[in-house]
Simulated assay, not measured.
Amino acid sequence: MTDLRLVIFDVDGTLVDSQADILAAMGGAFAAVNRPAPDRSAILGIVGLSLPQAMVALAPDLEADRRAVMVEAYKDAYFDLRAKAGVAESSPLYPGVRDVLERLHAHPETLLGVATGKSRRGLDKLIEGHALEHLFVTRHCADDHPSKPHPAMVQAALADTGLDPHRAVMVGDTSFDMEMGAAAGVVPVGVAWGYHPAERLNAAHTVIETIEALPPLLDTIWEDA
Rank of each mutant, 00 (worst) to 15 (best):
S18L: 04
S175G: 15
M170E: 00
A152K: 04
H130F: 07
L217F: 09
P146F: 05
F176Y: 13
V207C: 07
D80T: 06
A182Y: 13
V97T: 06
A88S: 13
G13K: 11
W193E: 09
S41N: 10
A204T: 02
I208T: 12
V114H: 05
A64V: 03
E109Y: 09
I46N: 00
I8W: 02
L23E: 05
L23N: 03
D224E: 13
R98S: 03
D219A: 07
H196D: 01
P146W: 15
L112I: 06
L15K: 14
I221T: 12
A77M: 09
S50A: 08
E109A: 04
V191C: 01
E72H: 14
A73T: 02
A54D: 00
V154M: 01
E209D: 07
A31H: 12
P149I: 08
D164A: 13
L44W: 02
M178P: 01
H107M: 13
L163C: 10
V87Q: 10
V71A: 08
G190L: 04
H145N: 13
D76P: 01
A68S: 15
D144S: 06
V169Q: 10
H107D: 12
V47F: 06
E63T: 10
A225W: 12
S147A: 08
D143N: 09
R35N: 10
P165A: 10
M178L: 15
L15D: 03
A168K: 07
P165F: 09
H140K: 03
V114C: 12
T138M: 14
S91E: 09
H140V: 06
V114F: 01
Y195F: 11
L6K: 15
A42T: 14
H145F: 14
S90L: 02
A24G: 07
I22V: 10
K75D: 14
H205V: 06
A57H: 03
V47N: 04
I221P: 01
A83L: 11
V169G: 00
G122T: 11
D12A: 03
I8A: 05
S50T: 05
A88R: 11
A37N: 02
A54F: 03
D144W: 09
G129R: 12
V187C: 03
H205I: 10
I8G: 01
M1K: 12
R67E: 00
G27A: 13
A131V: 05
G13I: 02
R98K: 15
H166K: 15
R120Y: 09
E179P: 08
E179K: 15
V186I: 02
L49W: 04
A106D: 13
V47D: 00
F30K: 04
M70E: 02
A83C: 13
P95I: 11
